[in-house]
Design a protein around this nucleic acid. Structure first.
Lengths: 108, 108
DNA sequence: AATTTATATCGTAATATTGCGATGAATTAG
DNA sequence: CTAATTCATCGCAATATTACGATATAAATT
């Protein structure tokens, strides 16, 4: 136990859950906002903007990369991060569909 | 450690992260979908639809209630769950704003 | 009053997440 | 070649999450 039983859910349910994870931590929300608004791009600048250690920020960036919603462009010794437009749009559409599937009718 | 440093982030960042948590597990995505499409409402029906134990489903429902995105109407011995329209709309708008804040220009 | 039904909660085990200091790797600057 | 810079990764500790059997609760039914 302690592990999500991914096998028993659909691909789509698992993907939406994963995309949601990108936004499920305030630090990652802050990072995505900075990247979306192009207020920062280089990893170091993100660290400066965030009240977390460099190691912790780097870990959140890694998780966002795993999900695919950001990508990193290496320009040694720096790395420039940015939103992956394709995945961003995928997330926008998936959540949009989900939100709009709500049929307001009287149950409770 | 192991705890999110909520104090150092804005109210809004924390709120968005919390709303995202509602969707950050495939079981909760499945529950919210069923409720959104009104294919289920009573807790027992949700348990029947989901490949998880009653205790686990109940725990996910509790988390969704904590976030506020669903509410439960007690009609003993049953409980009828449904989407909380206000919070659902709050989530829809928050994510909508966030997604549309992405300025596509050339950085990386 | 005893039983049944539906749901919540407890207790526990396993795994995941969060956070950070220290260290490593890769490149540029001197 | 030696630093200095930037970022990733390791290793660890603390806490959170996930899952479920067992049990508790609460009302309806018998």
């Amino acid at each position: 136990m302690g592990t999500t039983k991914s096998e028993v859910f659909t691909e789509e349910e698992n993907r939406i859950a994963d995309l949601a994870k990108a936004f499920a931590h305030p630090a990652r929300v802050a990072i995505l906002r900075l990247l979306a608004e192009k207020k920062a791009c280089v990893c170091g600048d993100l660290v400066d903007e965030l009240p977390l250690s460099q190691a912790t920020v780097s870990q959140h960036l890694k998780e966002l990369k795993r999900i695919g919603i950001i990508k990193g462009d290496i320009a040694p010794p720096r790395v420039c991060y940015c939103i992956d437009e394709v995945v961003w749009n995928e997330a926008m559409q998936s959540f949009g569909l989900l939100f709009s599937s709500y049929l307001k009718n009287d149950c409770c």
